[in-house]
Design a protein around this nucleic acid. Structure first.
Lengths: 339, 339
DNA sequence: TAAGGTAATGTTATCGATAACTCCAAAATA
DNA sequence: TATTTTGGAGTTATCGATAACATTACCTTA
């Protein structure tokens, strides 16, 4: 590999002069600048950012950790983060925790040893607190995405889970539904708790009793317990609508319903949080609360870099990005009872 | 930041001894090992992989460059690459070229200066040759994914574009279609050329004349020229089926057809390369040639690391991964002519 | 014309780790 | 007992860059 010393020797200058040409600082005569530049071209020189990082104590690398790379919400978020990082001169070190604390821990160790300049972190859940504390102990600039973690103070970019949930449920109520099931992510995750709260609030505001039997506790990747879904559907007083706490759960629910021979929305209405990407383009079917995923990533990255470069005030900021209710055809009016 | 020197001082040993404990090599008495380890814990020491990389000339970072992070094919591929990299002890530096040579060039520069150990590269097209040559000039281990580039010799993981295209078209022919449109990606991309060839071969084998008017030249992200699609649909002898060269083009085509009031598959059959991820789970509709995207990533990563670690033979390997024809309902028998 | 200024460049130390070599004392061997 | 071996350390140079200071040579200006 070519180093500044190779360049220096061939151009008959000192390494420092080469460094000055590269960084375009210090006084240099036009003649030597040209000579050095020419030698750099000839030898195909590329600076070693490793060596530079070591002395500058800055890597220009930002780590992005998301929980599910196959979820369109997170890939769109990643795209926003990546675009903004690139625009501001940072590289992206990428990680995917699969909603799994052990994998998340491995990434945190890697992040620490890589000496990244900052971390964009979508936590797997409340259990991420230890990992986040570790990052903070090392004073690594941090922005949380999508989920808060109790006990962790940091810049945070959130969606309006409670409000969004409330609106989705009220949409179902307006269609006449009274028995509405909730298929939720793990209560270990802040968004799941807030969507649960929004669900309850909507019921309360409309004088409908909350029934724990209508709530299925799953996780954001899949329903897992198919039997529980079946039981829910065969309750004495079964639901006529389902609110799924995210896109994957909605897909899981629809597949489960299909397996039972139930049609959506004829036999069961379904709504959910997060849009589906391509699926919605192909078949604008599912009524959703769509979150501005790209903005989660781009704003989070912007905030992080502000902090890295000392442009942020001391205390952490939090923003709640609104979601948009997109009414399509997966939720319909409640069928008349055959009484 | 804590360094081995801090540890060394506090443990009353030399830095070298600390290094030996960290790397678990060299002779060390159990006593000092324990003492050093304890001090490392106390001070929350994390090795600086930057410094280590500089002396070892190895970063344990692999760069993954894909062309579209919003395409489920590439995200699934990325997941495969990421899982395998993690399993084998490498970190992933991530890039998204957006099918754009300028962005791709920026990433290549970044890759070079980061001194990554290897590159997993999904090229934007034939114009990527200059970038790939640059990587090869610097002797960076390289594996091409999904697309070949004329003039570049490297390990390559490909799909069976020609064969897959042939089978999709023959599926349409078997359904009675005789006028089959092709909506193709840029001919600057090897897979688009091969899918075009497969399309022609299928026609030829079935004694159907190739009609250039039925071929729409777009790119893999979108159809761009909507007017061209309209013209194609209003040909004197219009197509009864469309073969879209990838998933995005299929979605674009279906949207275009819908805008014209045409129903799929009643008025027009549609098939394409690459499955749709969530969309197919929600609504198993589009008949596709599904590629093993995860395997593209995991196998490519495996090959790359083999090469990095000197376990690969000299000459480049190429593998062609088969695709699977998944027949769903977007292609139907050709409607009878009203003659 | 001597003292100081300045443009252009060079020297040395440093970032945090590791390789290669050196050193010393205790144990093994002749 | 003298010599060699070896376990358990320490020293020094190095990776490739940059910061801080040092050094020229030439140019001003009182």
């Amino acid at each position: 590999m070519i180093t500044i010393y190779d360049i220096a020797k061939k151009a008959n200058v000192s390494a420092m002069t080469v460094s000055r040409v590269i960084n375009n600082n210090g006084k240099i005569s036009e003649l030597t600048r040209q000579r050095v530049k020419q030698v750099m071209e000839e030898l195909n020189y590329v600076p070693n950012s490793n060596a530079r990082s070591l002395v500058l104590q800055k890597t220009h690398i930002i780590s992005l950790l998301i929980t599910d790379i196959t979820n369109p919400f997170y890939t769109t978020l990643a795209r926003g983060a990546e675009d903004t990082a690139k625009r501001l001169g940072y590289k992206l070190l990428f990680g995917n925790s699969d909603e799994n604390y052990a994998k998340e821990k491995d990434y945190v160790d890697m992040i620490l040893s890589t000496r990244v300049d900052g971390v964009l972190f979508a936590p797997a859940g409340d259990g991420s607190a230890v990992h986040l504390q570790q990052l903070q102990k090392h004073r690594i600039p941090l922005v949380l995405l999508d989920r808060e973690v109790p006990g962790i103070q940091a810049d945070t970019v959130l969606g309006d889970s409670k409000e969004g949930a409330r609106r989705l449920v009220e949409h179902l109520l307006a269609l006449g539904h009274r028995r509405i099931a909730l298929i939720n992510g793990s209560e270990d995750v802040s968004t799941a708790r807030q969507r649960h709260t929004g669900y309850k609030e909507a019921l309360k505001l409309n004088d409908i009793a909350y029934d724990e039997a209508l709530v299925l506790h799953a996780n954001y990747r899949d329903i897992q317990d198919e039997a529980a879904l079946d039981r829910l559907l065969h309750l004495p007083d079964p639901p006529t609508a389902v609110f799924a706490a995210n896109n994957f759960l909605a897909i899981g629910a629809i597949q489960g319903l299909r397996a039972q021979g139930l049609r959506v929305p004829d036999d069961m209405s379904v709504v959910c949080f997060d849009d589906l990407g391509l699926a919605s383009a192909l078949h604008p079917f599912l009524t959703v609360a769509a979150q501005p995923a790209y903005q989660f990533g781009s704003l989070g990255m912007q905030w992080l870099i502000d902090r890295i470069e000392g442009r942020a005030q001391e205390e952490p900021r939090t923003i709640i990005l609104p979601s948009e209710l997109i009414v399509r055809s997966s939720a319909a009016a409640r069928p008349r009872e055959g009484k």
